[in-house]
Design a protein around this nucleic acid. Structure first.
Lengths: 225, 225
DNA sequence: CAAGGTGTTAAGCCTTTGTTCATATTGACC
DNA sequence: GGTCAATATGAACAAAGGCTTAACACCTTG
């Protein structure tokens, strides 16, 4: 899960980043609205946490701009207690929830979880395609009935692919979803993971659940019927 | 046993928290209805104690909202003597019992025990999976008929895992259920408990009732039929 | 006070996993 | 067909994470 954090206060930002990272989120944090918008346009996030009082471009405008880009990930806004009217404006602009400063880090985490779960919407515990089924709460794959264990990273890759069935996902997009910063460019970790996944998904190499589109990325195939 | 306490009066709240904690409950306490609802949604409790006169969202609405979320844990309401009509409304809204203020702490504890016993009584006296059966009221485990003693913490761990069968439960989630605050990060208590549990559950190490999903947590395996 | 049990810590060992590397294979373009 | 870049593959390695055991402090209980 990759988060965008836009917060101008250095100390608070650092605390949040740490807390979120401890919870296994991958966090990109920036200090002002302009940078926030740039990041939001350039990368794809699972959720954003945005302080409403920001330099360069205020939080409300940032949210509007993000929504104008047709980005739909949930947005959690941080607002000071005294100007709570902002909160309404923020929700109007397209935010999904708010937390009033000062807050407990725990509250942020809980709200975030709620949003992400809600965003998953259909709250599907499992992603099913033909004889492949990925149980997202058991973190387990089942191939025509037989359960198969996945490592943490194998799971992340497969989940991401299965969440975008039939779409070509570039290696960069995948890598960015797995790691914090842009990872060492000349590494073939991803290829190795895909290789191991293919073996587990389809030991016989008959059905080719994951195609490689040369130069573009990988694609999880929706099985016929 | 984890309780949710929603009470706006600081002194009373503190007294209740202390008394309950002395009785080995784990207590989350909040000051208003909105926070209460949030907690109830976000975490899973064994029971709740709710004052009817609350800021932000009154107790009646809170109870309705909790029940609307399909939460079934018992709810004990606290009500002032003069407006006893609230009590009826509260019970109608879905509360299970009431105590009139002012009260003796002892009374709260007694009512709570009764509620919990009743809830355990017909809700789920035992968690059964294959040849494993955990008697939640006797706090006793039986492995293919033979009863096995569990220590307090062993029981807590196993109960939590068995309440979420087939799901991967992170160590953090488990630890938070065992202890109040987030516990010392670099301690391996949990591993030790799991180790001891595994021995008791399955001395032969054949059936692997508890899987470890590396980097993610533990999973109680649902035995195949 | 002795004895036994329980929760906790510490330490070393062992396994899994992520990562790298070297080398093979593939596909696209000339 | 030849050439080059992109991807696959298999093996090897180091570190993280988990396991296991033992010891210890603290309670209870008799």
């Amino acid at each position: 899960m990759r988060l965008l954090l836009v917060e101008d206060e250095d100390l608070l930002r650092a605390q949040l980043v740490k807390a979120l990272e401890d919870n296994d989120y991958i966090v990109d944090s920036v200090q002002d609205g302009e940078l926030g918008l740039f990041q939001a346009k350039e990368f794809s996030y699972d959720a954003a946490i945005i302080d409403l009082g920001l330099p360069k471009m205020n939080g409300i405008d940032l949210i509007k701009a993000i929504r104008a880009e047709a980005k739909v990930f949930p947005i959690l806004i941080l607002t000071a207690r005294d100007n709570w009217t902002d909160k309404v404006e923020g929700l109007d602009a397209g935010a999904d929830d708010y937390v009033v400063k000062p807050f407990q880090i725990e509250e942020i985490k809980a709200r975030l979880n709620a949003l992400l779960r809600r965003a998953a919407g259909f709250a599907k515990p499992s992603l099913d395609f033909g004889h492949l089924s990925l149980d997202t709460s058991a973190k387990q794959l089942s191939v025509s009935g037989n359960s198969v264990e996945l490592t943490a990273y194998e799971y992340k890759v497969l989940e991401y692919l299965m969440l975008h069935p039939g779409q070509v996902i570039s290696k960069m997009e995948l890598t960015e979803h797995l790691y914090e910063q842009d990872y060492d460019r000349d590494s073939n970790v991803l290829e190795v993971f895909v290789r191991r996944l293919r073996q587990k998904l389809d030991p016989e190499e008959m059905l080719k659940p994951i195609d490689t589109v040369r130069g573009q990325g990988y694609r999880f195939n929706v099985p016929p019927n």
